[in-house]
Amino acid sequence: MLTGFIGTGSMGSILIEAFIRSGGLRPEEMVAANRTPAKAERLARQFPGLQAAGSAAEAAEASDLLFLCVKPGDFPELLRTIAPHCRPDQLIVSITSPVMLNQLEDRLPGKIAKVIPSVTNLVLSGAALCIYGSRIEPEDKKRLEWLLASISRPLEVAEDFTRISSDISSCGPAFMAYLLGRLVDAAVEVAGIRREEAERMAGEMLLGTGMLLTAGGLCPQDIIARVAVPGGITEEALKLLDRELGGTFTRLIGSTHAKFREDAEKVAELLREG
């Protein structure tokens, strides 16, 4: 039984590496294809046993579980290419949020799902968002979530909430890393601490905060209440953040939703033309 990956860019290669590192899949259970064949061949050299397919069609035909890891604009051509090589019993998983389940089900046989992974899956952590099509059976969910559990915590979400869920789970690491980077920059500039030291402290702080929010059973307000004592330094700093940030995150979510709608409309138009 082979698991295929079409597209070995950033997220496709993260999934392949994470599944192998976790033991969820062995290299010899995987086949990968990329529009630039040399990229798939490089993965095959990195992970002996992994097969580099010569084309997307070849990977689709060989796979029982198939991950589609390409950009939204590449989907119309990809779907035309692989449709004749897909099967009704095949489990086909897109990791591209602006491509809708019904669009995939209209053009491919098989059991269709979407999974939104996270860069955190590379260290076998974070969530993997699961969205299921109409042909998915309970055993298909169990099979897919068992595999995803080797690298993440699978969470089922409704397709209507794909974008906001992705903002938190998939885009969130970049947002938090940006804020952490700005904190480190300020620490280096104002206090003269070595950047490497500040980054190490910041990373450990973020890891510990994540543990409090998960295993520790706390919510963000709980953490704030425990750290920001009345009249203290943290409370004063939080007042500044509240004044300065204001509606920043509301605008941030507005911008991601606008981009999502733009991408989804482009995909729909390309699929109509195809």
Score class of each variant (00 low, 15 high):
residue 144 L to E: 04
residue 199 E to W: 09
residue 274 G to K: 06
residue 173 P to E: 14
residue 100 M to C: 01
residue 266 K to E: 15
residue 243 R to A: 13
residue 24 G to L: 11
residue 258 A to P: 03
residue 13 S to L: 00
residue 249 F to H: 04
residue 69 C to I: 13
residue 81 T to C: 03
residue 263 D to S: 15
residue 155 L to Y: 02
residue 117 P to W: 07
residue 135 R to T: 13
residue 186 A to E: 08
residue 244 E to A: 06
residue 169 S to F: 07
residue 28 E to H: 14
residue 217 G to Q: 04
residue 28 E to N: 14
residue 93 V to T: 06
residue 56 A to F: 10
residue 133 G to N: 05
residue 77 E to Y: 04
residue 201 M to V: 12
residue 137 E to Q: 12
residue 137 E to P: 00
residue 20 I to A: 02
residue 184 V to R: 03
residue 99 V to S: 03
residue 83 A to M: 00
residue 141 K to E: 00
residue 51 Q to A: 14
residue 226 R to F: 11
residue 209 T to M: 13
residue 63 S to T: 01
residue 22 S to A: 10
residue 95 I to S: 02
residue 24 G to K: 09
residue 234 T to P: 05
residue 222 D to Q: 10
residue 118 S to V: 01
residue 32 A to T: 03
residue 102 N to G: 06
residue 106 D to M: 08
residue 169 S to A: 15
residue 267 V to T: 13
residue 176 M to C: 14
residue 220 P to W: 14
residue 12 G to T: 02
residue 111 K to Y: 11
residue 39 K to Q: 09
residue 183 L to A: 15
residue 152 S to V: 00
residue 54 G to W: 09
residue 214 T to P: 10
residue 149 A to W: 01
residue 229 V to G: 10
residue 260 F to S: 00
residue 45 R to W: 07
residue 215 A to T: 15
residue 212 L to D: 01
residue 25 L to N: 03
residue 71 K to M: 10
residue 145 E to C: 04
residue 261 R to A: 15
residue 212 L to V: 01
residue 65 L to R: 04
residue 260 F to D: 07
residue 231 G to L: 11
residue 69 C to E: 06
residue 270 L to E: 06
residue 85 H to E: 07
residue 7 G to V: 11
residue 248 T to M: 10
residue 23 G to C: 09
residue 129 L to E: 09
residue 117 P to A: 03
residue 82 I to T: 05
residue 175 F to V: 05
residue 201 M to N: 09
residue 185 D to Q: 09
residue 34 N to M: 08
residue 117 P to V: 02
residue 155 L to H: 04
residue 264 A to V: 13
residue 239 K to A: 12
residue 179 L to Y: 15
residue 259 K to R: 13
residue 79 L to M: 06
residue 179 L to M: 14
residue 162 T to D: 03
residue 165 S to R: 02
residue 105 E to V: 01
residue 52 A to D: 07
residue 74 D to F: 12
residue 263 D to L: 15
residue 15 L to Q: 08
residue 110 G to N: 12
residue 58 E to R: 11
residue 6 I to G: 03
residue 5 F to N: 01
